[in-house]
Nucleic acid binder design. Structure first.
Lengths: 332, 332
DNA sequence: CTGAAAGCGCTAACAG
DNA sequence: CTGTTAGCGCTTTCAG
């Protein structure tokens, strides 16, 4: 591997001149510029980014933390972040937490070790105090995660209101016994889950009951959805909900599939509300009514915000696209 | 940020002793060991991986190249690779090419610059000679990409045979006018596309025609699928195919959706074959007949292979799981 | 078992 | 405009 030294020798110049050239320093005479270019080409030289980073303490890699990349919501989010980061010359390091605090800690440590220069967290496991403490090593922005009592920069949508409105929509359709699924536990990492809060508020507002048998935690996959359906179906008929608010389209599809399998009708026997508006959901046997998230905007705004910190510029989040939207189809 | 120097000073030892401790060198007296541990804890010290890499020339990051992370096939593949890499203590750097040679080149350059120590390529744009030339900087393994005339290590399935068999299945159902969609161009990066080859071989074997109007290139998305359907429907009836082999479930769903929209029936008016067996495909209005790929095994084997090169061990690919499987449902 | 010293490849004052 | 001179934080001989 050729080094800057070799280039300097071949060009008959000093290392510093070559270094200046590399950093597009102004004021380098044209003939030397040419000699450097020739030397670099001949030697097939590439600067070592490791050495550069060690010296300059500036990196060009940003980290992204997601819980599961295989979840389409996250893969699209990563897509959006990566695209925007690349626009600014940054590359992206993706890590999955699988809801594991350790993985999150690992990524935070990479910030400390300067492997990454900044971090977008699309998933949070640890408490905000811990995360905040890592800010001294580089900017951190929360994406689609909202913690009220923190000063960590965050880009988020109002899931409380969206959940409230979607639940009200269910109620307006005449449903009174509404079940609820969530991906995490009900309270997340010490702070409340805003979807849950919106759901509860709608129930309260309309004086509707919330029953333990109708609450499901830690459900993520189609399979999980099917199991939820089984539990619902095992309930005595008069105690069975007539609508369900789910945490994801996967879960919603699983429930739908199982209900259809046993000869039930949707939404007659159960109205199902999804979350995410994933590509296929409009094409299921019963097209899913669901809540669309502004993935592209979430990725774009959080990336822009992070980069503004990295480059010490100002950036004002454009919230105009950060809105959730209820997509009404057939399932509810 | 505390450095190894600070730790040494605080422990009253030399830097080299601390370095030895960090690298679990044998022969360090127990009391010094303890003093080092205390000093590190007090200073909240973390070794700088950048400096370590610069000196030792060994890294712990592997790169993954995919064309589009938002494609569920790739996001699941990345998931599998990441999980397996983590098992061995490696972290993962993901980059999308968007079918752009430049992005691929970038990743290859990261190998040269030692940002990553090894690379799994799940997508290939450039020619094999170029890629081979980067092998001197670190191991590269091809995942789900097969180039016959290269000595690059590769982990792949036999898509030619699977496509052949799936096409024969279509023919066995009585279809004689079979259309074809592909994600890329028909020949890819100079070498043939094995799916196309399998499809063609089946047609030849059964003396069936291949018509230009029935061939679609560069189709990827649901939207693309809908456009394909429109073109099909614009054909005079007697010239319209009665079956279609698609490159992905997205495309298949798009075609399906449009056909259903205009009142056609599937598979009566058109038999549709998908590719990938994505989670939702069994639950569409007409459940998709499709080809399942062994994603988990592809990720696992390529990661194991790459790591074996990195750690200079031997590894024999376990091909037993690397098989494609036709999933017969309703659409064909 | 431990320390001193010499760099890894590059950047950044400081003098010309 | 260009060269000299110190290091960045860590590993690795080479002598004790």
């Amino acid at each position: 591997m050729a080094t800057i030294k070799d280039v300097a020798k071949k060009a008959g110049l000093s290392v510093s001149t070559v270094s200046r050239y590399l950093n597009n320093h102004p004021y380098i005479s044209d003939d030397k510029r040419k000699r450097i270019q020739e030397a670099m080409a001949e030697l097939n030289y590439t600067p070592s980014s490791v050495a550069t980073q060690l010296r300059s303490k500036k990196g060009t890699m940003i980290g992204i933390l997601v819980s599961r990349i295989a979840n389409p919501f996250f893969s699209h989010l990563v897509d959006s972040i990566e695209k925007n980061a690349r626009l600014h010359g940054y590359t992206v390091l993706v890590m999955q937490t699988y809801d594991d605090k350790k993985a999150e800690k690992n990524m935070l440590e990479m910030l400390k070790q300067r492997v990454i220069s900044g971090l977008v967290m699309c998933s949070i496991e640890g408490d905000s105090k811990t995360i905040e403490s890592y800010q001294e090593y580089g900017p951190i922005v929360l994406c689609n995660e909202h913690i009220p009592e923190t000063q960590l920069p965050q880009v988020y949508t109002d899931q409380e209101v969206a959940s409230f409105e979607a639940t009200e929509y269910l109620i307006a359709q005449g449903h009174k016994k509404i079940a609820y699924c969530t991906g995490g536990s009900l309270t997340r990492g010490g702070h409340g889950n805003s979807r849950t809060e919106g759901f509860e508020r709608a129930l309260h507002t309309h004086n509707l009951p919330m029953k333990i048998d109708w609450i499901f935690k830690q459900v993520h996959t189609i399979q999980d959805g099917m199991e939820v359906a089984d539990k619902l179906l095992a309930l005595p008929e008069e105690n069975r909900p007539d609508a369900i608010f789910t945490s994801s389209d996967e879960v919603a599809s699983g429930i739908l599939e199982r209900y259809l399998d046993v000869g039930k009708q949707v939404p007659r026997d159960l109205a199902i509300l999804g979350f995410d508006n994933q590509p296929f959901t409009g094409m299921l046997s019963v097209p899913l009514t669901t809540i669309a998230q502004p993935i592209e905007a979430l990725g774009r705004e959080s990336t822009n915000l992070l980069i503004s910190y990295l480059e010490e510029k100002d950036y004002q989040i454009d919230t105009s696209d950060l809105v959730l939207k209820l997509i009404i189809r057939k399932s509810a």
